[in-house]
């Protein structure tokens, strides 16, 4: 009684997912594009801050560093809803950044996702680069490069490992719904992305459609990962 409809739903979701893609549905296309744009921009923004921060933490030794590392690792678990609320209160017209008028816009979603994933990028980058720094430290000091100069060197030499870090950030960004729902408002045609569309269809009770959208999202994330991996392999073969 319970399992039969569920099987049917799964079946129909799969068919619907294929149908959505095959139709090249314009609304879906726009939602997909916005999702990609928001999450990729958020990753780029977070990388700009998070990767150098992670590299700096990998090379710098200062009192309280251990505390910073622990805090950063803990921030990886920042609930999206909390990140969303924080940005909501900042960007609300009644908040400190209200005059910018960014609430309920894609820009707000980018900021919230960037806040969410910057600690992830920083923490993972620190881990990856610290191992590399252990190997490089003496040689770079012999060349007269201090920790500051080591940061760009490590970022560049760690580029292939860092790509995986970026993909982890992208995965988290494109999968989260709490933050973009709150600061974007899930406005149709303007701030609706894959995850908020899935949440909407779920609450409308159209579970097969929600599941179908979920499958499309997974396919997109898979494609982005495959592309990145492919490029990485090509570049790695050239540069080592």
């Amino acid at each position: 009684m319970v399992s039969l409809p569920a099987m049917n739903d799964l079946h129909s979701a799969f068919g619907q997912a294929l149908g959505l893609v095959a139709d090249g549905d314009a609304t879906l296309g726009n939602i997909v594009l916005l999702s990609l744009r928001v999450s990729l921009t958020a990753v780029a923004l977070a990388a700009l801050v998070g990767l150098p921060l992670g590299a700096l933490l990998a090379v710098a030794r200062f009192p309280g560093r251990g505390g910073v590392v622990v805090a950063l690792n803990a921030l990886m678990g920042l609930p999206p809803v909390v990140a969303g609320l924080l940005i909501y209160l900042l960007l609300s017209r009644s908040g400190p950044l209200g005059p910018l008028g960014l609430l309920f816009t894609p820009t707000a979603m980018v900021i919230a996702q960037a806040l969410l994933i910057a600690p992830i990028l920083a923490a993972l980058a620190r881990q990856v680069l610290e191992a590399m720094w252990e190997e490089y430290a003496e040689q770079l000091r012999s060349f007269g490069a201090g920790p500051w100069r080591a940061v760009p060197t490590l970022l560049w030499d760690g580029r292939f490992a860092l790509l995986t870090v970026l993909l982890a950030g992208f995965g988290r960004a494109s999968a989260e719904v709490g933050a973009v729902m709150i600061v974007g408002g899930n406005i149709e045609g303007f701030t609706r992305v894959m995850t908020t569309a899935i949440a909407l269809e779920t609450s409308k009770g159209d579970l097969p459609l929600a599941l179908a959208l979920g499958m499309v999202l997974m396919a997109i994330v898979l494609t982005v990962n495959a592309l990145a991996q492919g490029l990485r392999d090509i570049a790695a073969r050239q540069a080592g």
Binding site: S92, R93, L103, F104, G185, N186, E188, F190
Partner: peptide, 21 residues
């Protein structure tokens, strides 16, 4: 004029209005 609808519970929607959002 495009209309951007933020759909929430009535209480939350009034809060959004109260905050000027």
């Amino acid at each position: 004029i495009a209309v951007r609808v933020v759909a929430l519970g009535t209480g939350q929607a009034l809060d959004v209005g109260r905050r000027g959002d």
